[in-house]
Design a protein around this nucleic acid. Structure first.
Lengths: 346, 346
DNA sequence: ACCCCCAACCCAATCGTTTGGGTAGCCCGG
DNA sequence: CCGGGCTACCCAAACGATTGGGTTGGGGGT
């Protein structure tokens, strides 16, 4: 409840102070300092009178003024490829939750995964004097990150990691492994991977985890069966067409590193007259809410998206507090559904 | 590029001024005023020297300081039920785009459609001294909006409208009508509606537009065939079960006011052994990107989500400029796909 | 020669908080 | 009785930008 004084302005510390006949600095210490300082600043009785009046007048501190003085804004900037990507939207919900707990507010901006835009958006946020950045669209080459480091901008990565920088991500390598175990255990021997964008660690790690485990299990997989693609349904479409046209024996299972690519794949398979789950198994990644709701429910690696967001925010807070923080990997689990439930008769 | 002075602080107006031997106020007028004022403040030569040095030093104005003085932050608050709702995420992209053009930055917060949270989030944003609010989660009863009006908080509604307040929405009544025309024209006579949440204008208008047109066309529709529900897949599920268990003759078509509810409906129909598009037509709303990609592509009313976001932002700007603005309705179009393409033989 | 005006600046207060330093009075111990 | 140490405050200078008013010095008009 932001209230106004008689003349329509919002209530300030000075208003409270003069009404009580004490100095603004005393009011400030009472209202905005840790209990130790506040204790030393005024008597218990005065403190109570101040708090009471602040409540009554609906005092709300002016963050511009405080920020100007302290050079901190309690604002965090969040940059994501696009919020209309469900995965990032959910991570952002986690960020918002953790930010609220820590007394921060957050800005989000979409970079559409374009390096130019990434820079531009980061600059806009820094111009707004955010205390730190959560970067959800890091590219593996990391040139932008090097610049930010060099300028001492506090940041953490989210969702995608880049070696050498603090990050909160899903253990994507493990996720890929889980899928390899599952498909191998179900008797599949000819598989293909819709691998995603090669600049994203999510794509590289999931694919790498899968392929390495597959080989460790004794399987083989042709390089031509690993198709890099966009993360959306159209990318899944195109990649699946490529796979089917590759000249390799038709795979009995496809692992897509992203649910939307998986959905695209399912569409293409269907239009080729193949039944998902019977002719070809499909496994996605992230277990977004549609996965379970598809006419043929999609197997998917469930990644703890909310938790990744929360963790990213908390990590950033620790970075701001001057700690050196290590990358955090959160554990995924595999949800097996109709799209990959059948075993291949051995 | 925010640069630093030798001692590590960021560059200020005063730094520029003293380096050039002129007064900070002159620098301010040159860099941040309209050309008329700037013209009067300094010679063309000086102005050029100032701009040049600002560029060289990487001067970036401190928004806290400016905001403190001017009592404007060039920040807008955006409140949505949840950003993980694709529809709102896309509208937000529109907002962000328009905001950037107008020189504003935006905060988003999720209210989960909970009145308590709505108030809390609005207060948080006002405490941050946003210049205005874009409210994407308005409830038809509008008690919160009345409070905000009473406190002279500038705001506009987005996606959902409430009579008496400025808003940018899809013409949902028209959207409902389009579906009625389409289904009637395809020969359907027994229809049901998955109507959404009764507190949201989107639900009420789409349902109302459909039902009114249906009756105008000579059709009948039992009140029991209009089922209010949540907006997500689970809501669609449940509503469809209700419809099938209602005792009415099984509908040959179902209109869901939201794509996700429609997807839920498709799942339920399928598990009842019915084929969508042949036994039962289904039409959704919003034409989210999955609609076209489903195994049975979903007919849907395409609403101009990006444009709604952009429009909301521009409307809010006009409100801030003191104009009185009228609600804006943006026109939807119907995309007919396999889920409702077959006509009923007459 | 006088006045006025304009171009090109300068001045200083102000926005609301924070924070490193006072200081006045009181109590208590030696 | 004096000094020291509390307690409970006050003071004033920042932070960086904005803005309504000056103030010069020179040129132009008459």
């Amino acid at each position: 409840m932001k209230e106004n004084t008689a003349d329509g302005r919002t209530v300030t510390l000075k208003d409270l102070a003069s009404e009580l006949g004490i100095h603004p600095s005393t009011v400030s210490r009472i209202l905005h300092s840790g209990s130790e300082v506040a204790r030393g600043a005024a008597s218990v009785a005065t403190a109570e009178r101040v708090r009471e009046l602040a409540r009554k007048r609906g005092y709300s501190p002016n963050p511009q003024a405080a920020g100007l003085r302290t050079r901190r804004t309690r604002l965090m900037g969040v940059i994501v490829p696009r919020l209309s990507d469900l995965v990032l939207a959910i991570m952002y919900e986690g960020i918002e939750e953790a930010a609220a707990e820590l007394g921060y507010s957050t800005f989000v901006m979409n970079s559409r995964d374009d390096p130019e835009e990434q820079r531009r958006k980061a600059e806009t946020m820094l111009a707004r004097r955010v205390d730190g950045l959560i970067i959800g669209d890091a590219h593996l080459d990391g040139s932008h990150l090097r610049e930010l480091s060099a300028r001492n901008v506090p940041f953490v990565l989210m969702n995608r990691r880049v070696p050498g920088y603090p990050s909160a991500t899903c253990d994507d390598v493990l996720g890929g492994r889980l899928v390899a175990d599952h498909l191998w255990g179900s008797g599949h021997r000819d598989v293909a991977v819709i691998a995603g964008e090669p600049y994203a660690s999510t794509a590289v790690d999931r694919t790498g985890g899968f392929v390495d485990r597959w080989k460790a299990l004794g399987g083989t997989i042709s390089p031509k069966a690993v198709v890099w693609s966009r993360f959306d349904t159209v990318g899944g479409h195109e990649a699946t067409e490529t796979i089917l046209a590759s000249g390799l024996p038709r795979p009995t299972a496809i692992f897509a590193v992203n649910d939307f690519a998986a959905i695209g794949a399912m569409g293409t398979l269907r239009s080729h007259g193949l039944t998902v789950g019977r002719d070809v198994a499909v496994v996605g990644f992230n277990d977004t809410s549609v996965a379970a709701e598809l006419p043929i429910p999609l197997s998917s690696v469930r990644s703890p998206m909310l938790d990744i967001g929360r963790t990213a925010m908390r990590l950033l807070k620790r970075v701001l507090d001057g700690e050196t923080v290590e990358p955090v990997l959160l554990e995924p689990t595999l949800c097996i559904r109709e799209s990959s439930a059948q075993s291949i008769p051995g």
